[in-house]
Design a protein around this nucleic acid. Structure first.
Lengths: 336, 336
DNA sequence: GAGCGCAACGCAACCGGTTGCACGCCTCGA
DNA sequence: TCGAGGCGTGCAACCGGTTGCGTTGCGCTC
């Protein structure tokens, strides 16, 4: 092996008989370098398995090529809130890698106010990605007032003023409700996640649209909100059942809530889907294995992750980000 | 605000009327600096919300204070394999933060052979953490031959030669089996994850020990292996039922497999737990909401994550790592 | 009072890249 | 034949920290 201490571009320069600037430019594919020289240098680097010191590069360039995924510091909460977080993360990672960026996972506690500076000004990261389920308005406003580059999955704080990627919540809500109506359900309820999320509002809008398309009126007492947790799902369906004993269908904003709701429905002596049809949201891994298997709305989470990455990279490079929504589709199983 | 371009320690030095070396040492709490000078410098830095440039620091120090979490590039697979990956990650992140390290998420494809060099020699990370569910022997051997610092969750490739953190699989297997036996089950089967994993072998050892403690013989035909996926769980129970129609209890190596197995049991016209009791493993979020709620083995995943972090940091600092197992306990619900 | 040790701090080199600018060489047109 | 203009490359400064070593000033001993 010829890997005898070939650690810096100076070493490569020596071997190639050129200066380190030439090596630097060659490795960066600069047009300033003659093609045969460039090829020779790159060949030498390849043969010696040279890896350019990224830290030095970052210092020179003044950027880290790293973005941070912001999470809470409370483990269980995170798991509860986003069963698809891993898949999303995988998509983000893939998208970032394709653009030469790495993904850092950080945790910030709610009371921490200068995490942005700590990560941004120290040069550890260039930007942030947040998940609406795991971030507070506090986070968003902190980011905005320091005008840090960031992007969110979901729309946690109003539709404007920052870049986001989200599922097509309107269509998702509409598809779910239409399916319920189409299968003959007469009184269809809505169990939302946190009412503050624009995503939830959009799902509600889809629910309303489907109802109206079918010539039905929206019954406010059939609309209840939880917080995406199983417990809140059980509580919500309980409330619905007490208000409307003849409820025969419900669109639930998350699979986790839906599963708990199904339990609760059975606890009330009703059956799913015979008495009450249930449609969930997210299509988590276990959704196919609940009893009965859950009919739900599937989002292209991996695609969303990739879009998040691309979008953030574009924001970092050009200063302008975009808002994108990825498609949602109905997955029919047994619960509705 | 006095945040007018206070970006470098030179700026602080100017404000404090000292040299940049003094500032550097003061911020690093060096004993070479007088306490009043040190305090003055730190106060100034604090007042100006100064954040030291971490990239430059890393270049000088020759270390990145970042470790990489190695994942596959196939999203769905990852989600399937490790429903608790997020929780683990959260624990790791917390543990690393406490020690001044950050967590980077990287994806390496199976055919990629020089990812270690790419990340290590470029100075982007100081070490790696792998999860046995998401890594191949290939990964491990690549790491070992480049003697890169790394640690694993689970024991993917033999008990020796590297550092790992894992659940107490022996006890977990024993507890599960004992519970089954204790509730009067006569023929208790074992559905394992990948037989190659030491973790799975340990769970099997616990299963065997419980059987023997009860004075029973191990029936090889009641032992079947899958790969942790729901599908493999369904297939495994099918196999078991055809071999042993009088099976009345089964210890399944993952909740995902267990849930699928329960479906399959019902599909065969049997009921859980009346005909066949089922104990899972992992205690994932949905385990409490399956039908029936799943009795399972719970591991302190967050603790494990912290241990992973601490252990790896120690390995990086001192060159010696440890092997640690975190406790497992039985969570009794309705399925057994 | 000279010599000494020590505490406190500054100087400047160094980490390993990037890049503005200068320079040498060659080609081409006048 | 000479100058202008390109092309390809090298020089050296720079990014913002860290640190070995030298320097200063002080109190102390003999």
């Amino acid at each position: 092996m010829t890997d005898t201490q070939i650690k810096t571009i100076d070493d490569i320069a020596r071997l190639a008989g050129v200066s380190k600037s030439t090596v630097s430019r060659a490795l960066n594919d600069s047009p300033l370098i003659g093609s045969e020289t460039k090829e020779r240098i790159r060949r030498i680097a390849r043969e010696h398995r040279f890896e350019r010191n990224d830290t030095a590069r970052r210092l020179s360039l003044g950027q880290s090529n790293v973005v941070a995924l912001v999470t809470y510091d409370y483990s269980a909460k995170l798991v509860q809130a986003s069963p698809f977080a891993l898949e999303l993360m995988s998509g983000i990672t893939a998208g970032l890698h394709a653009n030469g960026y790495d993904l850092l996972v950080i945790q910030v506690s709610p009371k921490d106010t200068d995490w942005v500076a700590r990560y941004l000004e120290s040069g550890r990261v260039d930007g942030f990605v947040l998940m609406s389920g795991n971030c507070s308005l506090q986070h968003i406003s902190t980011l905005m007032e320091r005008n840090a580059p960031f992007i969110t999955f979901g729309i946690p704080a109003g539709r404007r003023g920052y870049s986001w990627v989200t599922g097509d919540n309107y269509t998702g809500g509409k598809l779910a409700t239409e399916h319920l109506i189409g299968s003959g359900r007469k009184r269809v309820g809505f169990i939302g996640g946190s009412a503050k999320l624009v995503d939830v509002q959009d799902r509600y809008a889809g629910y309303v649209a489907a109802l109206e398309d079918a010539g039905r009126a929206v019954e406010p007492e059939l609309v209840v909100y939880g917080d995406f947790s199983p417990e809140s799902g059980a509580a919500a369906i309980g409330m619905l059942l007490s208000v409307a004993p003849d409820l025969d269908g419900v669109f639930v904003n998350s699979d986790l809530m839906a599963v708990a709701a199904m339990d609760e429905i059975r606890a009330h002596g009703r059956s799913v889907p015979d008495d009450i049809a249930v449609v969930g949201y997210d299509d988590v891994a276990l959704a196919a294995h609940t009893d009965p298997p859950l009919t739900t709305i599937s989002q292209s989470v991996t695609v969303a992750g990739r879009m998040l990455a691309e979008n953030l990279v574009q924001l970092l490079r050009t200063g302008v980000g975009a808002n994108v929504t990825v498609p949602a589709e109905l997955v029919v199983r047994k619960s509705a």
